[in-house]
């Protein structure tokens, strides 16, 4: 009989997971879109979706760094911030989400070593953070690109330096999936 016992599953939080420490980035886009017609950008109104964690809600450090990283990435990819009352070609939205997820720790059978002392698989709980960035056609209000980065936030939220590095790396890698604009 198959049975789950208390010994089978031990739920812990920690940094021992190699799998969930990986940053995963990807994007969806409108294939065939002529990106060269988009030159300028501006921030769109913030969405009303919940962040999922009070530590990031209305955190000016987090918001400033995310917005700064995105503006830098947009500039790097050939966009310019719209000037004065000039109507931007695209609007930028971003959304951050924190949710609890499960992972199974790694047993390195190739090296004959285990991640746990008793060499049993462990299911662990960790905080997964997702940063989503939307690029919206300002004229039609249609989403033309959505990029995201996901990774474990264990040990990140409480450390400003790690949080800043995580934001920078997330945005940089995410924007590498943006189609060639120029």
């Amino acid at each position: 009989m198959r049975q789950i016992t208390r010994a089978t599953i031990v739920l812990t939080a920690g940094l021992l997971l190699t799998g969930c420490a990986t940053l995963r980035v990807s994007s969806h886009t409108d294939r065939g879109l002529v990106w060269s017609k988009y030159q300028t950008f501006e921030w769109g109104p913030a969405d009303a979706l919940p962040v999922g964690d009070p530590r990031l809600d209305k955190d000016p450090f987090f918001q400033d760094h995310v917005e700064g990283a995105i503006e830098k990435a947009m500039t790097t990819h050939g966009f310019a911030r719209s000037v004065g009352t000039e109507r931007p070609d695209v609007l930028i939205h971003y959304h951050a989400n924190v949710m609890e997820r499960l992972d199974v720790d790694q047993i390195d059978r190739g090296n004959g070593s285990c991640a746990t002392t008793d060499c049993q698989p462990r299911v662990t709980r960790y905080e997964a953070g997702t940063l989503v960035v939307d690029i919206v056609d300002a004229a039609s209000n249609v989403l033309i690109w959505r990029g995201w980065a996901q990774g474990s936030l264990d040990g990140v939220l409480g450390n400003r330096d790690r949080l800043r590095r995580r934001i920078d790396e997330s945005v940089r890698q995410m924007f590498e999936t943006l189609p060639p604009v120029r």
Partner: peptide
């Protein structure tokens, strides 16, 4: 949704149905 699957492991017999012997999410 995220799911947890532990059915590969037969803990009563102390063995696995395959060589992986680990829960999966």
């Amino acid at each position: 949704d995220q799911r947890l699957d532990t059915t590969d492991i037969d803990r009563i017999d102390g063995r696995c149905l395959d060589n992986e012997c680990r829960p999966e999410v």
